[in-house]
Amino acid sequence: MTTFKLIINGKTLKGEITIEAVDAAEKEKIFKQYANDNGIDGEWTYDDATKTFTVTE
């Protein structure tokens, strides 16, 4: 398992979430669903070196 981080830079929601997953593709799906469930629609980036997804509205 690898630890992945999501950084949220939303208009109404900001924060960080850290979760373990098998791979980045699995985690991306979970993070995007979390963002969608919380009304966050923005630009996504991924840094493989730090295993960090960022979504910015």
Results as ranks from 00 to 15, higher is better:
residue 1 M to F: 10
residue 39 G to E: 03
residue 16 E to A: 09
residue 28 E to Q: 05
residue 14 K to D: 08
residue 41 D to E: 12
residue 19 I to T: 02
residue 10 G to K: 04
residue 51 K to Y: 10
residue 4 F to R: 04
residue 38 N to R: 13
residue 43 E to C: 14
residue 6 L to W: 09
residue 36 N to A: 14
residue 23 D to H: 06
residue 11 K to Q: 07
residue 48 D to L: 05
residue 37 D to A: 11
residue 5 K to Y: 15
residue 46 Y to V: 01
residue 24 A to F: 12
residue 35 A to F: 12
residue 43 E to A: 09
residue 41 D to T: 13
residue 30 I to R: 02
residue 55 V to W: 12
residue 22 V to S: 12
residue 3 T to P: 03
residue 29 K to F: 10
residue 54 T to I: 07
residue 50 T to Y: 02
residue 19 I to R: 02
residue 23 D to K: 06
residue 13 L to C: 15
residue 43 E to M: 09
residue 39 G to Q: 07
residue 25 A to T: 09
residue 21 A to R: 05
residue 17 I to H: 03
residue 5 K to I: 13
residue 37 D to S: 06
residue 36 N to K: 14
residue 57 E to S: 10
residue 5 K to V: 12
residue 22 V to Y: 11
residue 51 K to S: 04
residue 20 E to K: 12
residue 46 Y to W: 06
residue 19 I to K: 00
residue 35 A to Y: 06
residue 30 I to L: 09
residue 39 G to K: 04
residue 43 E to K: 09
residue 3 T to R: 11
residue 1 M to C: 15
residue 21 A to E: 05
residue 3 T to I: 13
residue 48 D to W: 06
residue 44 W to D: 00
residue 17 I to P: 00
residue 3 T to Q: 08
residue 33 Q to A: 10
residue 25 A to W: 13
residue 2 T to H: 10
residue 27 K to F: 15
residue 18 T to P: 03
residue 40 I to Y: 06
residue 33 Q to P: 00
residue 49 A to K: 07
residue 37 D to E: 12
residue 11 K to H: 10
residue 44 W to I: 04
residue 19 I to C: 15
residue 18 T to K: 06
residue 22 V to N: 10
residue 25 A to E: 09
residue 39 G to R: 04
residue 14 K to T: 10
residue 13 L to Y: 14
residue 45 T to E: 08
residue 40 I to A: 02
residue 21 A to H: 09
residue 10 G to Q: 03
residue 37 D to F: 05
residue 32 K to S: 05
residue 39 G to A: 08
residue 10 G to M: 13
residue 10 G to I: 14
residue 32 K to I: 11
residue 57 E to N: 08
residue 19 I to G: 08
residue 50 T to H: 03
residue 49 A to V: 09
residue 46 Y to K: 01
residue 32 K to Q: 10
residue 6 L to P: 03
residue 30 I to M: 06
residue 8 I to D: 00
residue 56 T to P: 02
residue 53 F to E: 01
residue 15 G to Y: 15
residue 36 N to L: 14
residue 32 K to N: 07
residue 32 K to P: 02
residue 7 I to P: 00
residue 52 T to I: 05
residue 32 K to L: 13
residue 49 A to S: 07
residue 17 I to A: 01
residue 11 K to T: 09
residue 19 I to H: 02
residue 11 K to Y: 08
residue 16 E to C: 15
residue 16 E to D: 04
residue 51 K to T: 02
residue 4 F to T: 06
residue 31 F to H: 00
residue 47 D to F: 01
residue 29 K to T: 09
residue 26 E to F: 09
residue 6 L to S: 00
residue 31 F to W: 08
residue 31 F to A: 06
residue 46 Y to Q: 00
residue 32 K to C: 15
residue 13 L to K: 06
residue 28 E to D: 08
residue 2 T to L: 12
residue 33 Q to D: 06
residue 51 K to D: 07
residue 39 G to P: 03
residue 4 F to Q: 06
residue 27 K to R: 14
residue 2 T to I: 14
residue 29 K to W: 10
residue 45 T to K: 04
residue 55 V to S: 02
residue 28 E to N: 05
residue 13 L to V: 12
residue 55 V to C: 11
residue 39 G to L: 07
residue 44 W to K: 00
residue 9 N to S: 08
residue 30 I to S: 02
residue 52 T to F: 04
residue 5 K to H: 13
residue 48 D to S: 07
residue 22 V to L: 09
residue 51 K to E: 03
residue 7 I to W: 03
residue 13 L to E: 06
residue 14 K to G: 04
residue 38 N to A: 09
residue 15 G to M: 15
residue 16 E to T: 13
residue 43 E to N: 07
residue 55 V to R: 05
residue 29 K to L: 11
residue 31 F to Q: 00
residue 47 D to P: 00
residue 5 K to W: 14
residue 46 Y to L: 00
residue 45 T to R: 03
residue 13 L to P: 03
residue 37 D to H: 05
residue 48 D to R: 03
residue 17 I to G: 01
residue 49 A to F: 08
residue 18 T to Q: 09
residue 40 I to S: 02
residue 40 I to C: 11
residue 3 T to N: 05
residue 17 I to C: 15
residue 43 E to S: 07
residue 51 K to F: 11
residue 52 T to P: 00
residue 39 G to Y: 07
residue 6 L to R: 00
residue 35 A to D: 00
residue 15 G to E: 11
residue 17 I to R: 03
residue 36 N to Q: 14
residue 32 K to R: 12
residue 47 D to Q: 00
residue 45 T to M: 06
residue 13 L to M: 12
residue 39 G to H: 06
residue 34 Y to P: 00
residue 3 T to A: 05
residue 43 E to Q: 10
residue 21 A to V: 14
residue 27 K to E: 09
residue 8 I to F: 11
residue 50 T to W: 02
residue 32 K to G: 04
residue 49 A to R: 05
residue 23 D to G: 06
residue 5 K to R: 07
residue 57 E to V: 14
residue 17 I to T: 03
residue 34 Y to L: 13
residue 9 N to L: 13
residue 52 T to W: 02
residue 7 I to A: 01
residue 22 V to M: 08
residue 2 T to P: 11
residue 20 E to G: 06
residue 12 T to R: 08
residue 43 E to F: 10
residue 7 I to H: 02
residue 33 Q to K: 11
residue 17 I to N: 00
residue 16 E to N: 05
residue 47 D to A: 01
residue 33 Q to E: 08
residue 54 T to K: 04
residue 41 D to P: 05
residue 34 Y to M: 09
residue 52 T to Q: 03
residue 22 V to Q: 10
residue 7 I to Q: 02
residue 36 N to D: 13
residue 47 D to G: 01
residue 8 I to N: 00
residue 5 K to S: 05
residue 13 L to R: 05
residue 55 V to L: 11
residue 13 L to G: 10
residue 26 E to N: 12
residue 57 E to W: 14
residue 34 Y to T: 01
residue 31 F to I: 12
residue 26 E to V: 10
residue 33 Q to H: 05
residue 55 V to F: 13
residue 23 D to N: 08
residue 27 K to N: 12
residue 50 T to Q: 02
residue 9 N to D: 05
residue 26 E to P: 04
residue 9 N to K: 07
residue 18 T to W: 14
residue 25 A to K: 08
residue 41 D to V: 13
residue 57 E to D: 09
residue 55 V to M: 06
residue 23 D to M: 06
residue 54 T to G: 01
residue 10 G to A: 05
residue 17 I to L: 08
residue 54 T to P: 00
residue 46 Y to E: 00
residue 20 E to V: 13
residue 29 K to R: 10
residue 1 M to I: 10
residue 40 I to F: 11
residue 26 E to C: 12
residue 44 W to F: 05
residue 3 T to G: 04
residue 6 L to Q: 00
residue 12 T to A: 07
residue 43 E to I: 13
residue 11 K to W: 11
residue 47 D to S: 02
residue 41 D to L: 14
residue 32 K to M: 12
residue 10 G to E: 02
residue 1 M to H: 07
residue 50 T to K: 03
residue 55 V to N: 02
residue 47 D to H: 03
residue 5 K to Q: 06
residue 25 A to V: 09
residue 12 T to N: 09
residue 7 I to E: 02
residue 1 M to E: 06
residue 26 E to R: 03
residue 5 K to L: 11
residue 57 E to P: 11
residue 9 N to M: 09
residue 47 D to W: 02
residue 15 G to S: 12
residue 42 G to Y: 11
residue 7 I to N: 02
residue 13 L to W: 15
residue 54 T to Y: 12
residue 28 E to W: 15
residue 52 T to L: 01
residue 28 E to V: 09
residue 3 T to Y: 11
residue 5 K to E: 07
residue 29 K to D: 09
residue 18 T to M: 08
residue 1 M to S: 08
residue 12 T to Y: 14
residue 12 T to K: 08
residue 19 I to F: 15
residue 3 T to W: 12
residue 3 T to E: 07
residue 10 G to T: 14
residue 45 T to D: 04
residue 24 A to K: 10
residue 43 E to P: 04
residue 53 F to G: 01
residue 15 G to I: 15
residue 6 L to M: 04
residue 18 T to E: 06
residue 27 K to A: 15
residue 5 K to D: 12
residue 9 N to P: 00
residue 12 T to P: 04
residue 25 A to Q: 09
residue 28 E to A: 07
residue 9 N to C: 15
residue 42 G to S: 02
residue 49 A to Y: 06
residue 27 K to T: 15
residue 29 K to P: 03
residue 49 A to W: 05
residue 33 Q to R: 07
residue 1 M to T: 12
residue 12 T to G: 12
residue 31 F to G: 02
residue 40 I to R: 01
residue 49 A to G: 04
residue 52 T to H: 03
residue 22 V to D: 10
residue 26 E to A: 07
residue 20 E to L: 14
residue 27 K to Y: 15
residue 20 E to S: 12
residue 22 V to P: 12
residue 50 T to N: 05
residue 37 D to N: 04
residue 50 T to I: 03
residue 11 K to I: 14
residue 57 E to H: 10
residue 53 F to K: 01
residue 48 D to T: 04
residue 27 K to V: 15
residue 49 A to P: 03
residue 56 T to W: 13
residue 6 L to G: 01
residue 54 T to F: 12
residue 38 N to H: 13
residue 35 A to R: 04
residue 17 I to Y: 11
residue 30 I to F: 12
residue 4 F to P: 08
residue 36 N to C: 13
residue 53 F to Y: 07
residue 24 A to N: 14
residue 28 E to I: 14
residue 57 E to K: 04
residue 6 L to A: 02
residue 56 T to Y: 09
residue 17 I to S: 01
residue 27 K to H: 13
residue 6 L to V: 14
residue 15 G to T: 15
residue 13 L to I: 13
